[in-house]
Design a binder for these strands. Structure first.
Lengths: 226, 226
DNA sequence: GTCTATAGGAGGATAGAC
DNA sequence: GTCTATCCTCCTATAGAC
């Protein structure tokens, strides 16, 4: 085996370990909260001692940051990408909702953490870039709404701030579906398929924002992303 | 001064003290979370030592319970009362939204705590009665939706579970408006009047749930409660 | 009803052996 | 890269004086 290959393999093993710790941490943070989770619990979950965690991470907060980082940055990337598509606002809005729900389903722990620890993220300057990304995500959604108003698909007297806040809170707090009191894993997200949820939320939102004369139009399909 | 009068006045003073502690605790719990708040901080806020708190409360959790108890029980009472009004479902739904927003505005700290600590409430058997009340509130809302479907005001293919979850999450997570990162007190709730918010949410929700042929009808006013 | 004082434990994090 | 061992701080809660 060549040196380069061995180095790659070693790095991979190290990354695996890190990843396992991160997953345990994310599970705990999502289910019990950041403050309520101790480094000893995380260490127990991966069968090492708490001190050994600090070989992989400098602080508990670093674990928190890594547990949500990609989810937040991808969320912005996705929203901006969809907002920039060359299509009408309704299709964009449906696509935003579908992709957001898909991300939520695929990374429910990260989403639960982002949502539940939002006060902490806002207070701690280390997480400023996360809050910035969140804000930019919000603005991408808002631009879609405003496009729809301009082009007449959405009704003109919409308050875009309140509307997007309401929609995003409605969707994001769905991460709360993660694990019910009885320990059952996913509740609504498990009982409803992604397609069913997309249809529900897209319908719910579109009926609210559409201009009156478009009320009877069918809900468009989401755009396929490259 | 008579003995009875003096006793009443003494009790009042004691209750005042308890109340002051409770308010300090609620403020901290709402802003930083239950776990992140220490009894010392609460004690500092009311200028006593942490040990003295235990003359008024047995545990920190007792403070938590008392900080949210009335808000949750009143919420159920209110929802059941509105659901039982002798009027149409649309009016009931608008009334539910208006009264919920009014309660949210009036007791924003309690609402923020209920929302943010819901995992803790669900896990701890001491708070089972709170979870029961929350569920009954949910059922009252749901009964209104189902009345509307039966009577033809709301469209027939509604999923009442998803719909009420979405609406309640949208409204309740508004308690997050409590104090922004810059310390400004209320954000949206401060910038928008209760009437404006009621109008917004009632419109948003009604457009979504109404049957197609009622889309153009005006949004009814909320019922006045006795 | 608040104080002083402290019990008794758990928290995050570190140092150095292996 | 994990272990042993441990630091030191902070936590909730208690006991008893005033």
């Amino acid at each position: 085996m060549q040196l380069a290959t061995r180095l790659v393999s070693a790095r991979k093993k190290k990354e695996d370990r890190r990843q396992a710790i991160l997953e345990a941490a994310a599970r705990r943070f999502a289910e019990f909260g950041f403050e309520a989770t101790t480094v000893r619990q995380i260490a127990d979950d991966v069968n090492i001692l708490s001190g050994s965690l600090y070989h992989h991470f400098a602080t508990k907060e670093e674990m928190l940051g890594e547990a949500v980082r990609d989810a937040v940055l991808d969320q912005r990337e996705r929203a901006q990408c969809i907002a920039a598509l060359p299509c009408d606002a309704e299709t964009k809005l449906v696509t935003l909702i579908r992709e957001e729900l898909a991300a939520l389903a695929g990374r429910i722990e990260a989403y639960a953490i982002i949502f539940n620890e939002r006060k902490l993220f806002r207070r701690n300057p280390d997480f400023l870039y996360l809050m910035k990304a969140r804000k930019e995500t919000f603005e991408a959604w808002r631009s879609v709404l405003e496009q729809g108003v301009l082009e007449g698909q959405f009704h003109a007297r919409i308050d875009s701030y309140l509307t997007i806040s309401a929609i995003m809170r409605m969707l994001n707090s769905g991460a709360d579906w993660y694990r019910h009191e009885d320990g059952s894993p996913l509740d609504a997200l498990a009982e409803y398929s992604l397609e069913a949820l997309t249809e529900f939320y897209a319908g719910f939102v579109l009926r609210s924002v559409r201009s009156a004369e478009r009320a009877a139009q069918p809900v468009p399909a989401a755009a396929e992303l490259a």
